[in-house]
């Protein structure tokens, strides 16, 4: 059975509308299934991707998401990069606090997504956009 996604290369998805957020979820799920994440881990990484892709759209003014099947020699996993050229985040520590929001949401996007994955890296500065990289490893 083929998933229809070439796992040897990163898969890119533009995020410019909320329909694109749905596409990101579908792409992440396809790759998460292909690298044999457990059902709970698939659910966690797709949920994290949904939160972060929505942030890319709402706060970053749109951007790109890149999904890659990875392998660290011991186990496979999935790495996802969310990049935008939006206003960036001035106070990162505050932005990563549960319940903090500037957009009228619940303020769980960043902090919640970080809890749902194994590796979480964020590069941002005011006026420099935001680049978030997350990885979930199969167990």
């Amino acid at each position: 059975m083929t998933s229809g996604v070439d796992l040897s290369r990163p898969q890119a998805q533009t995020v410019g509308s909320d329909e694109d957020v749905v596409r990101v979820r579908q792409l992440v799920r396809t790759v998460a299934v292909a690298v044999k994440l457990s059902l709970v881990d698939q659910t966690k990484v797709v949920t994290a991707a949904s939160e972060l892709a929505r942030n890319t759209l709402v706060y970053g003014g749109g951007g790109t998401v890149e999904v890659t099947a990875v392998d660290n020699g011991r186990r496979p996993g999935i790495t996802i990069v969310f990049a935008d050229s939006g206003p960036g985040i001035a106070d990162l520590e505050l932005a990563l606090t549960d319940g903090y929001t500037t957009g009228g949401g619940l303020g769980l996007g960043l902090s919640g997504a970080r809890r749902l994955v194994d590796d979480f890296d964020i590069q941002t500065a005011p006026g420099q956009g935001t680049r978030i990289t997350i990885t979930k490893w199969s167990r």
Binding site: L39, V40, Q42, T43, K44, T47, E51, D98, L106, L108, S111, G112, A113, R115, L116
Partner: peptide, 12 residues
């Protein structure tokens, strides 16, 4: 079940 587990971890 997987959705319930994820929701709780997300903090919802």
């Amino acid at each position: 079940p997987a959705v319930a587990i994820t929701l709780v971890e997300l903090g919802l």
